[in-house]
Design a protein around this nucleic acid. Structure first.
Lengths: 194, 194, 194, 194
DNA sequence: TATGAATGAGCGTTCATTCAT
DNA sequence: AATGAATGAACGCTCATTCAT
């Protein structure tokens, strides 16, 4: 399918690069078209409008991330191991694609509310994975039974997201992936001594 | 002093209201001026440019929040009590000013990177308070001694921020402030049973 | 080439007309676009900015004037004949295009200094022609050998320019071109009797 | 009278300085007021509007120039001597007040047409002096009897004006006043040999 | 007289989208 | 499918002038 519409991914990849290098507000459609090697008008044969490029970009990148994640999670037994996998994968995905990291953590957030709500919808798949793991952890007795799933999920996502954003804003100077263990430990055991 | 420059706060308050109700990109200077009951040009007697309104807005609101926080923290003994206070105050500040919540959680993030970096600079005062509490907790033996301060701070801020944002995006339907206890418990003790 | 970019000349001609009729400061880009029968944005496909329209206008009109002049001068023998040609052509160019006369003598001078310096650069080609003629006149023995070329050139240009400006400010009431002979005589022989 | 309204001249002098140093379009009323050491509003107690400052400026400076000129001319016998005096005085007035030279030759010309027509009205006094001298020269037999007075006057004024403007645009690098003799010679005897 | 805070009209330019070819 | 020239709506900011004190 992507074979048959090679320009679709070509434009999305161009968008990631252009946005990462020029910033959200300096990424005009004409610039993306140029980077993709197509005419401005061609963009509109593949995307409804500019917003649609960004949503598709996020859907495409996040979609394959979630798919792979769901697959790999099956290989893990405990909730904690699954949580560890998610954190590690999340970190490594973005550590391995610095352009994508800049785009998702900084640039895409400058989009208008409407677009961000659509992005949130796509994120729901990811948040559902998190909730499943948490539920599983309660059921298996790993996590406290009165755990507020929604709050816990917000803690997991909020912590991961803030960690990545801080890393990007510090120019990706240090190794992000290696932080996964400590983050997991903090989430599961908290700050408390013992 | 602010008494003597009533228009300054008048314009800032107008900006909060206009942005909350119309969205960041639909908040033209003329709209803010109208809401503030002044002429467009008057804005520029008090602010360098439009961006300066937004920075000042954040500085003004966040500044008094941090000041009050630092004051009240002195009355608390343990690090955990101090953390509880911060979370509660953070939640109640935004729960009590729904317009401000929309502006800080959703609208201001649509601003360009330059402005957001200035906002981050202002936030540093807040993040420093968090780090102080964490350091204190380690020294007092409340928190584990090998706690990674920066990571822990990112967990606290990330969790609070994500919790508030989710609440705002759900139209502030439920009581935010009452979540403070559970959030504190999660941060301090983690998900783990026992 | 100009045939293939009809909008370019279309916009320049519209600018001359709009400026002549509305005055420099009342000639908004949108007004020029309307007169040219194009959209505002189209202007910017052909010109860098508003100032660029004015520079191009002057360059275009003056450029072809200087080219034609250089050509026709070759057909003349004496320096005096050449000078006569320049004066006559200068007068008839503006007498035949009353809009252009208003624009060059009155309106374009209201532009800022930066633009006027660019206009002066374009004028240099014309001033060079004048200097060549004067040099030639000295060498041929027509003009006094101790003639100060620069001063003489300023006298020629200053006289022509002042004559045209006065004519424009008097609403182009009298025949400008027919003054050429008398102007030439004054420049060559001065006020003096005999 | 000026004694009794010291601020009037104070504002005019401030205007000359501000315009010479900042350029016409960067000479806001508030800047002139500041330079004059008065409040913005005070300007309007002495001048009807901004344009009125500029007209008054020109009238004031040109007025005393013309008065002095008329006085000194009486001391000269021949038309040629009188013409020599006018040129010399015109040059030395501006050579001795570099700010005034910049303002009259470059900056004031950027004003709108209406203002420039008022300036022309003031100039008429000067042009009348020129015409008187020319008429006198014809009557006395110094100048050719068929001299076209208006054209000759345009030649005199155009030459002087162009000479001064060129000098100002060349940053007043050379001595202007010493050019008077050569200019006079050119005007009276032309380019012609013998 | 003198002040200076307040006013508000006015405009060059960008860029997502269209559509004739 | 692909092109790219053309479109036109939208807005932050300046500054001459006023007027309450």
């Amino acid at each position: 399918m992507k074979q048959k519409r090679p320009k679709y991914m070509q434009i999305i990849d161009a968008a990631v690069e252009v946005i990462a290098e020029n910033g959200y507000h300096q990424s005009q459609v004409s610039k993306i078209a140029k980077q993709a090697g197509v005419a401005d008008g061609t963009i509109y044969l593949y995307f409804k409008n500019k917003e649609d490029i960004l949503i598709s970009l996020f859907k495409e990148k996040m979609g394959q991330f979630i798919e792979r994640m769901e697959e790999e999670i099956k290989g893990k037994q405990t909730a904690k191991e699954k949580l560890a996998l998610v954190i590690t994968k999340h970190f490594s995905l973005l550590a391995d694609d610095r352009h994508l990291a800049i785009v998702t953590q900084l640039e895409l957030r400058q989009s208008n509310l409407e677009l961000r709500q659509k992005i949130n919808d796509i994120l729901k798949g990811y948040l559902n994975i998190l909730e499943s793991i948490l539920t599983e952890g309660i059921e298996s007795g790993e996590f406290k039974e009165n755990l507020d799933i929604r709050l816990a999920r917000q803690m997991v996502f909020g912590t991961i997201d803030e960690t990545v954003t801080t890393w990007v804003m510090n120019d990706q100077k240090y190794d992000l992936t290696s932080l996964a263990d400590k983050v997991l430990d903090l989430l599961v055991f908290g700050f408390h001594k013992e």
